[in-house]
């Protein structure tokens, strides 16, 4: 029984979500191998070999794999799948894109956003925006999972000594091609990995105010910036800052929600945070029901005061 983790990487380095997925893979009880499918991704494969607990790294190199197109990556995984009992992907945009495609090609079900490994075939996963936790058992020969990274500690990025084995790259499907990428520039910690998150909602009123009020607080705390759907839809913050059922799922040490009412869909993305602070003028806002510390105040006054007090 061996598990294969499909690494998320940018060809040069391994993304953090891969480390949490390795921990989940180890919990299924067997050896853990990692697949690095990319182009000129030798550095990423070498980094994967350093991850504690990984015994083998499979490295597939081809121009067709450079941008992680689902059609090509899925074909690559299928070519290797027969030797594995578990195929695990991080539940990121990339993992969610490919995992179901792999599962369907193997004619097996896929388990999404697994938060706990109970045994090799039994897992926990949240449903209904995190309002219920389902314990599910898979009867399939190969278990295909995506792993909710906040559910598992990251494996140590060093200390491992896996062998790197080059495997034949799958052919290009020829049905899809990569056109371009627009990356949101940010010097801040990555949202899903940040220890502290400062998040803003519709109450900020505009993009200028959002940045003007929340940036100093985030700077002071070394925090990542997040946003509610309302703030994103209104154009106050970029789409990929959205925290919630349909955005990022985060679980930082400290989550500060400023001007966020706390709709079910938002809570689904942050209620596993260790400490939640809510700053809101509305005493009845649902966010106060999950907040460890609630401050009923105008955020335009309270947030600058908070910056000054830190």
């Amino acid at each position: 029984m061996t598990a294969l983790v499909i690494a998320e990487h940018d060809n040069a380095s391994i993304k953090g979500a891969t480390l949490n997925t390795v921990t989940a893979a180890a919990a299924t009880g067997g050896e853990v191998h990692v697949l690095v499918a990319g182009h000129n991704a030798g550095a990423a494969a070498a980094a994967a070999a350093q991850i504690a607990g990984v015994t083998k790294v499979l490295h597939a190199d081809s121009a067709a794999l450079a941008e992680g197109l689902a059609e090509n990556v899925a074909a690559q995984v299928i070519a290797l799948a027969s030797g594995y009992s578990h195929l695990l992907f991080p539940a990121t945009a990339a993992g969610k894109n490919v995992a179901p495609r792999v599962a369907a090609l193997l004619d097996v079900a896929q388990l999404s956003d697994v938060t706990k490994v109970i045994s090799a075939d039994t897992f926990e996963r949240p449903i209904y925006a995190g309002n219920a936790i389902a314990t599910v058992q898979s009867g399939d020969a190969t278990k295909v999972l995506t792993v909710r990274t906040t559910g598992f500690d990251p494996a140590a990025a060093s200390g491992g000594s896996a062998t790197v084995e080059t495997v034949a790259a799958a052919a290009d499907s020829g049905k899809s091609s990569f056109v371009g990428r627009e990356v949101t520039k940010s010097d801040r910690p990555e949202l899903t990995a940040a220890k502290i998150i400062v998040s803003g909602g519709r109450a900020l009123g505009s993009n200028d105010k959002f940045m003007e009020v929340l940036t100093p607080l985030a700077d002071k705390l070394g925090a990542a910036l997040g946003a509610s759907r309302a703030a994103v839809d209104a154009g106050y913050a970029p789409n990929d800052w959205q925290v919630g059922q349909t955005g990022k799922i985060v679980a930082p040490q400290l989550y500060i929600a400023a001007g966020i009412s706390g709709a079910i869909q938002h809570l689904a993305g942050m209620k596993d945070s260790k400490v939640i602070v809510a700053i809101n003028k509305d005493a009845e806002a649902p966010i106060f029901s999950v907040a460890d510390y609630g401050l009923e105040a105008d955020l335009f006054v309270a947030v600058p005061e908070l910056v000054a007090a830190l």
Binding site: G139, K271, Y293, L306
Partner: peptide, 27 residues
């Protein structure tokens, strides 16, 4: 169905929080 649901449970409840009167207390 290929996946059997063994059980559906409530997510763990968060402990009741407190309201703080001002920023200084919060900090």
């Amino acid at each position: 169905p290929r996946i059997k649901t063994l059980k559906v449970s409530e997510p763990p409840k968060r402990g009741a929080g407190v309201k703080v009167p001002d920023v200084a207390t919060l900090v």
